[in-house]
Design a protein around this nucleic acid. Structure first.
Lengths: 295, 295
DNA sequence: TTCCCTTACGTACGTCGTAACTATT
DNA sequence: AATAGTTACGACGTACGTAAGGGAA
């Protein structure tokens, strides 16, 4: 189970083709064929169905391990590389849509005033991708938002050692279409919304799975899947009545066509968390501290 | 960063010697030397100090990745192997000391009555080792106890996909020496115990780190470390006044020389959880169901 | 001097690419 | 017939063991 072979398996399954995977990896088609054959011989099971190409049951199972494994491998390399590297002259942030708040922007501005010439970059991604970016060193700092019990950490994928610091907690809110019968209420009970129509937008709003886990319910079933990372697009879908979405009260407020109503749930808040390497370089440490002061 | 090289690194650091690691792995000393050199060349950093042999800073950092990585690799192989394997004729359980309760023993007896000829084995281990045993297929089912919020899952190491089912919740209890001034109380507030002397027995009682996390405190600092997996030994240390230990009320009750007092903490219970592969073989499924009925 | 890790070197095995082959549509 | 994965085979590189070399106690 050489990691190279696993990487090839991932490419083959993703491309649904041996030759396309070979092109993507810079191998010949023959090498890819040999990689898969070698994995299958090692594990004693067929992993990939040919014509059409797709994973078998065992193949899918192995895929669930391969991704985290390869990520960890990259994370380990990045972790060691950071120990040798000079502090970055360019600060790269990865954050989820609702985590990119005015106070984050202000904190970043404050840090940059203190360090003239510090370049910066911001990438908006889904929560998992933010964590991945921090682990692999693509980003120096990540900011993720989601739902959790007060003072509890967010349930983030545990793919390696990293430090997490809560930087903001605010009430949870639900986005409703402007004309919705419940839109006038001052607050709504989360339990009453479990059977509503929901939009699953795991990269943009609070993932429904997180609501289910935090509320210990079976509800919050998606009626529409929304894949982008754009909050405005999600708001338009909510406004058109496709379903509801949960996020922080501040992020949800003042969206055109939709109304944000506070969710009153026992011990459940919208939380934003900073994710960074455990030995952060100087500008990262300063930014985390600046964020802490706004919390 | 070939896994073989990582395995060698782990062995070298654990044995504090190249030649001992070579013997343990079935290599020559020369090969081990080449492995380490190759890793160091790849990462561009010295990982191991020689004479005496020990990890450098970067080496320790890499070790934190190597363990989980190798575990995941074994877990992946075991996961695939289980898909092909026939249902086991011997049921192997791994459990933490306080999880081996009369009701577990009864449930196992019930299942074995329903399946005559089913051999069984029980191993008592620390929580991490229990999870490891299940992931690598050494055990068919794991039982772990610890502290958590009611209905919340225990904070287990996330080293791979597995199913967890809560099987019991009972009040948290603290073990006190028989003559202790607080021993007569009907219940104690957890917060009042944060500054007491504690014994850290992560393989036997509730790990102190779990108490800290669950109670959102900084207290519960260990005064004595207890490494074994034997509850009776821990009780003797408590009785002798070395410090306190937390566990479930039932497991703690009736221990000679010590007194169990219920801990009243807001939203904090002692919980036992079953851990098993996501597609359990028949006898495992039956046992989990039997355990569920006792909960 | 002894112990233990490193380096040199030869061999064996593994991995990749080229190219011929085979199966599916 | 064309497309796409497999197999055969040869060249190259890698990884191991043997054995000689070097530095610390």
């Amino acid at each position: 189970m050489d990691p190279h072979l696993l990487r090839t398996l991932v490419a083959v399954v993703e491309h649904r083709s041996f030759s396309a995977a070979a092109r993507a990896l810079g191998y010949t088609q023959s090498a890819v064929s040999q990689h898969i054959a070698s994995l299958e011989a090692d594990l004693g099971t067929k992993l990939v169905e040919r014509r059409p190409v797709g994973p078998t049951g065992a193949g899918e199972r192995l895929m669930e391990h391969a991704g985290p494994l390869l990520l960890r491998l990259d994370a380990a390399r990045a972790d060691i590389a950071r120990l040798r590297a000079a502090p970055p002259t360019r600060l790269t942030l990865a954050c989820t849509p609702a985590a990119l708040t005015p106070s984050l922007a202000a904190a970043l501005a404050r840090v940059r005033r203190g360090a003239p010439g510090l370049a910066a970059g911001v990438r908006v991604l889904g929560p998992d991708a933010v964590v991945r970016a921090v682990l692999t060193g693509e980003a120096d700092l990540g900011l993720v938002d989601g739902a959790a019990a007060p003072n509890d950490p967010l349930p983030l994928p545990d793919a390696g050692p990293m430090a997490t610091v809560g930087v903001a907690e605010e009430p949870l809110a639900v986005l409703l279409p402007a004309g919705h019968p419940l839109a006038g209420r001052p607050a709504l009970r989360l339990a009453d919304l479990a059977d509503a129509h929901w939009i699953d937008a795991p990269d943009t709003a609070v993932p429904l799975a997180q609501l289910r886990a935090a509320a210990h319910t079976d509800g919050f079933r998606p009626r529409l899947a929304y894949g982008g990372g754009d909050l405005a697009g999600l708001v338009r879908l909510v406004a058109a009545g496709h379903g509801l979405a949960a996020t922080g009260l501040a992020a949800a407020a003042g969206q055109p066509g939709a109304v944000a109503v506070r969710i009153s749930a026992p011990r459940l808040v919208h939380r934003t968390e900073a994710v960074h390497p455990r030995t952060p370089a100087e500008p990262v440490r300063a930014l985390v501290e600046a964020l802490g002061h706004t919390a």
